Simulated assay, not measured.
Amino acid sequence: MTFSICVRETYADETGADRTRFGVAVTTRLPAVGTLCPFASENGVVATQSLVNVELGRKGVEYLDDGLAVDDALQALLNADDGREQRQLHGVDSDETFAFSGAECQGWFGHRVGENYTVAGNLLTGESVVDATAEAYESGDRDEPLAKRLVDALEAGHEEGGDKRDDLEVQSAALVVTSTADETPEPYYNDLRVDATRDPIADLRATYETAKEGYEAAVAKYQD
């Protein structure tokens, strides 16, 4: 029903301290994907899709918060799930990546694992959707906010054909970015959803740009 990307990045904050940020973004040809698929905390991100089992995402992040490695956490959840062959589940933590595509997912389906990211999709027009998403992320400018680069990655996959069910016009998209840094206030543009639209990527981008503008205005007004 969808394609999504999970990423991990290390960076130095304003004090020079080493930090890690995580991001997850997803789009589909159904409404409200942000309520079902992306899960995030300061310890990692998880995306659950295909025949969605929300508990895989919710418990997956809880296990990461408890200190389990992402591969151990997600594999344990799949082992206990009788419907695992109809699931896609992927994610990253501070050290590892994990991706699973069950044999009974609907085609085209598959995933790609990079050094610090995972991309997965099902019911796509082809493998090029996943490849374009991954390559857009890999080539993105690290000086730009991760939220923007996640939108760029979704856009690249969407332009390759995305979800093949073009008879379903009402679509959705969502992104979440977290960090080990303590940002006050947290950027408003790091947790965004477009729940029902016919142009999910353009609307998610517009939402991001408006939220970023609002965040910058608030910081300028209240920074003292």
Rank of each mutant, 00 (worst) to 15 (best):
M1G: 10
V7L: 12
D13T: 02
D13V: 04
T15E: 13
D18F: 14
F22K: 00
G23P: 09
L30H: 15
P31E: 01
G34L: 01
L36F: 07
F39Y: 09
S41P: 10
S50V: 13
V54T: 13
E55Y: 12
G57L: 02
R58N: 14
K59N: 11
V61Y: 10
E62K: 13
E62L: 05
E62T: 12
L64W: 07
L64H: 07
D66F: 11
L68I: 03
L68T: 07
A69Q: 11
D71C: 03
A73E: 12
L74G: 00
L77F: 00
L89M: 09
V92G: 02
S94Q: 09
E96G: 13
A99C: 03
S101E: 12
A103V: 15
W108T: 14
V119R: 00
A120D: 10
T133K: 04
E135M: 08
E138H: 12
E138G: 05
S139V: 11
G140N: 04
R142N: 08
D143Q: 13
R149G: 00
L150K: 03
L154N: 06
G162M: 02
D163P: 14
D163I: 06
D166P: 05
V170H: 15
V177H: 04
T180Y: 01
A181E: 09
D182I: 01
P185H: 07
Y189D: 09
D191K: 08
L192P: 01
R193D: 14
D195S: 08
A196M: 02
P200M: 00
P200N: 00
D203I: 09
A206R: 05
A206Q: 01
E209G: 05
T210A: 07
E213L: 03
G214R: 12
Y215S: 04
E216K: 10
A217V: 07
V219M: 06
A220P: 13
